[in-house]
Amino acid sequence: MRAMEYVRPATPAEAVATVAARPGARFLAGGTNLVDHLKLGVASPETLVDVRRLPLDAVETYDGGVRVGANVLNSDLASHPLVRSRLPLVSRALLAGASGQIRNQATTGGNLLQRTRCVYFQDVTTPCNKREPGSGCSALEGYGRYNAILGASPACVATHPSDLAVALAALDASVVLLGADGERRIPFEELHRLPGDDAATDTTLGPDELILAVEVPTTEAARRSAYRKVRDRASFAFALVSVAGAVRVTDGVVEDVRIAWGGVAHKPWRARRAEAALVGQALTADAVRAAVDDELGAAETTPQTAYKVPMLRNTTVLTLTQLAEEEVA
């Protein structure tokens, strides 16, 4: 690990100004991803700007939703009464991730900006365009079980590992940011990007932009929402695939439905084609299957990732049909 300066600014504005003024400075929150990267040599900032103690730790209602401060711990967000009752998908996604200890340390902002778990990204002895632009992508020919099947590029086939991000993509959340030019608000779906020919860049944020909060609308569909994660062991593992679903059925037909997938792309994948195919239909297993296949028409698989297509189809069918059954009951 290289020698670093450590600073703890008193306000969000000071944190932003510090990172803007110092090349090679990075925000530090819980550290569960960044400190790992310092040890692995994946990141070597000159200055750590500690934002963990900034007063961004409130969960509060606003008209039409819940606003979550960037420093709210994953464990506290998952067990917050408002979230449990109005946004069960958010609780479920968080509780499906990491471990009890890690959730007590990991923050909302850090969770969303955690980087891929692709083994080559984390191994500095191998080529990786995300870590070292232009060096090549080892995952194309190498170990590829976790690779993307949607929206990938020849430069990068990494997937985004956050469970929370999949839930927020499904719920049409927004992200509140503070940069040197002031505050701005973006739709959650615009936070992460597909790799294209710039694999090194995960998000649309500037390097000195600080996440202040996430705003999540509490719609009727959000109340009927669920998260289903498929992994290699029953707990404490990243997703092979995951499905965030929310649905509202009125008079036997789908009025509102949200589907987002994890483990399939460089960003949480909002399955809008599948959603559009389901609105106005009865929510049957056959209808969901057809809608998923419509969305997955664009999927590109290898022998190592082919399993993700039926796994995603079956998991989506199960998630949505169970939600619809609960609604009837």
Partner: peptide, 19 residues
């Protein structure tokens, strides 16, 4: 490496001491 930190279980290997 788990300890109780300010009353809650917490890892210590991914924590920078100065923070």
């Amino acid at each position: 490496c788990t300890v109780l930190l300010d009353g809650r279980r917490h890892l210590t290997c991914l924590a920078i001491a100065v923070a």
